[in-house]
Amino acid sequence: MELKAELSGDVLVISPLHDRIDAAGAIQFKDRMREITQTMTARVVLDLSRVNFLDSSGLGAVVAAMKALAPDRKLELSGLTPTVQKVFRLTRMDTIFTIHDSLPAGMRHAG
């Protein structure tokens, strides 16, 4: 599970480059998130725009990553694709995250 991390001001933007967070990749995702978020920023934005598929294991891994940062730091989500959005909505996990439609202009990767 490759995750790209970029610092944009005081926000750490993390982008999974793989198109799915599933049972086969959930543990690795959690481990990589833990490593990357060692960089101390108050806000961490997980850019899910490349992720087309997320199952309950993947959802659990995202929630675990959020809880690992709490209560001092926040995990926000961005760019949920339709299937990922549906999983968050049905499980009501969309109510515990700040979710952005897309990355704010200043945080978009140049290329």
């Binding site: 199952d55 309950s56 294991s57 959802l59 659990g60 891994a61 929630v63 675990a64 959020m66 809880k67 709490a70 209560p71 999983v87 049905l90 499980t91 996990m93 515990i96 995250f97």
Partner: peptide, 17 residues
């Protein structure tokens, strides 16, 4: 069940979905 992010479940969504 959960009340906020801090006690949000990390699993048990499978059969619900």
């Amino acid at each position: 069940q959960f009340t906020d992010g801090l006690d949000a479940p990390e699993g048990g969504f499978g059969w619900y979905l």
